[in-house]
Amino acid sequence: MKNKVLFSAIFMATWVGTLIPSAFAATPCSVGQKAEVLWKQAWYPATVLKVNDDKCYITYDGYDSSWNEWVGTTRFRVSFQVGDSVRILWKGKWYPGKVLQVYNNLYKITYDGYDSSWDEWVEPARVSR
């Protein structure tokens, strides 16, 4: 009986672990996310305003709204990389931390001053500079 319960627990943890990242992989961006957008062979900082399937409606930082546009994944890239210092939104408050990994538009982060048991995968809207 113990083996059956243990097997079930391992199976569920594995299944959920593969399901959750793939659920976020469908959209390339999140509202509020900071990113870079390719325009005429140069990358410009931008912020996501809306999301529709595989497109992101962005505003270019420092430009007026006449430049806002829908962009796809070929012109959109995440602006955080492994090792970047970031702020992470947790329960309505921002905490300092670092990016440990980037996977399918999700970030594995660590909080400054907290042990690794607090490390977690977060969606882009919860990460800021």
Score class of each variant (00 low, 15 high):
1 M>Q: 08
1 M>W: 11
5 V>A: 10
6 L>R: 11
6 L>K: 12
6 L>F: 08
7 F>L: 08
7 F>E: 06
8 S>A: 15
8 S>T: 06
8 S>E: 04
9 A>S: 06
10 I>Q: 03
10 I>Y: 07
11 F>C: 07
11 F>N: 00
12 M>S: 04
13 A>D: 02
13 A>W: 04
15 W>K: 01
16 V>P: 01
18 T>K: 09
19 L>T: 14
21 P>N: 05
23 A>S: 12
24 F>P: 00
25 A>H: 10
26 A>P: 03
26 A>M: 14
28 P>A: 10
29 C>F: 06
30 S>H: 04
33 Q>N: 03
33 Q>S: 06
34 K>V: 07
35 A>H: 09
36 E>C: 07
36 E>G: 01
37 V>P: 05
37 V>E: 04
38 L>I: 13
39 W>D: 03
39 W>G: 00
40 K>W: 06
41 Q>F: 09
42 A>S: 08
43 W>S: 05
43 W>V: 02
45 P>G: 04
45 P>Q: 00
46 A>W: 10
46 A>L: 05
46 A>F: 10
47 T>H: 10
47 T>A: 01
50 K>Q: 11
51 V>Y: 10
52 N>M: 14
53 D>Q: 12
54 D>W: 12
55 K>A: 13
57 Y>C: 02
57 Y>K: 05
57 Y>N: 05
58 I>K: 12
59 T>P: 00
61 D>C: 11
61 D>Y: 12
62 G>D: 01
64 D>C: 13
68 N>V: 15
68 N>A: 15
70 W>R: 08
70 W>V: 15
72 G>K: 12
74 T>Q: 15
76 F>S: 01
77 R>P: 05
77 R>V: 03
78 V>F: 09
79 S>N: 14
79 S>D: 10
80 F>Y: 15
80 F>G: 05
83 G>E: 00
83 G>H: 08
86 V>R: 02
89 L>S: 08
89 L>A: 02
89 L>K: 09
90 W>S: 13
90 W>P: 00
90 W>Y: 05
90 W>G: 06
90 W>K: 09
90 W>E: 03
93 K>Y: 11
93 K>P: 00
94 W>V: 08
97 G>W: 14
97 G>R: 05
98 K>Y: 13
99 V>R: 04
99 V>H: 06
102 V>G: 00
105 N>A: 02
106 L>H: 02
107 Y>M: 05
107 Y>W: 01
108 K>S: 02
110 T>P: 00
111 Y>V: 14
112 D>P: 08
113 G>L: 08
113 G>F: 13
115 D>G: 13
117 S>G: 03
118 W>Y: 15
124 P>M: 08
125 A>D: 03
125 A>N: 08
128 S>F: 12
